[in-house]
Nucleic acid binder design. Sequence first.
DNA 1: GTCCAGGGCCTAC
DNA 2: GTAGGCCATGGA
Length: 214
Amino acid sequence: MNRIASAYESLLECFGPQGWWPAETTFEMAVGAVLTQGTAWRNAERAIDNLRREGALCPEGLSRISPSALRKHIAAAGFQRRKAATLGLLSELAGNTETGWRALLATPATELRGRLQSVRGIGPETADAILLYAGRCPAFVIDAYTRRFAVRHALADRKAGYAAMKELFESSLPADPDLYAEYHALLVALGKEFCRTQPRCADCPLRRDLPEAR
DNA sequence: GTCCAGGGCCTAC
DNA sequence: GTAGGCCATGGA
């Protein structure tokens, strides 16, 4: 077993199954992926709660509210102008309908990734998060937690780009969306508990399995 | 007051 | 091609 695969076993043993993504519908997952960009999840969650109260967590509802109201509802997640525009474009991509959204998610992964990334404000990471959690496609999400984990444990070079980092994880694991989803969630759990509060990973549960970068 | 959080875009080299 | 500034808000 390679180091990335064995680290997964250790994480699962340490934190238990996370059962991600925290959302009720696939569209809500996509909205969450946009809202959490460069922002603590706690703040994205507030914005999601506001949208839920307004009935705007579906393409129809989102397209119904005014741009200024949308900005107000998502303000807690920060970058409100950009994110409001992105959410509007995402809904448009789905034809502003639930059936359009489902049809979009049913398109082949490569095409779906391209269409998502054609939306201004959706880059490789957000596209992969939507692909993985909403589309159940085997796309590994490289976020800040994943990057810190890989660099800290000398699995990847600090300068590795998004594509290289993604290739590293995907080539080390079977192409299983459930596995990718669980792994990513476990890395977030690890990051929240250790990698930020313990910069040197003094008590990191992976220390006995993985070397640390010097 | 300062720093940073589950990014992405744009501009200047 | 890539490093750095910028977008915005909330909590530690």
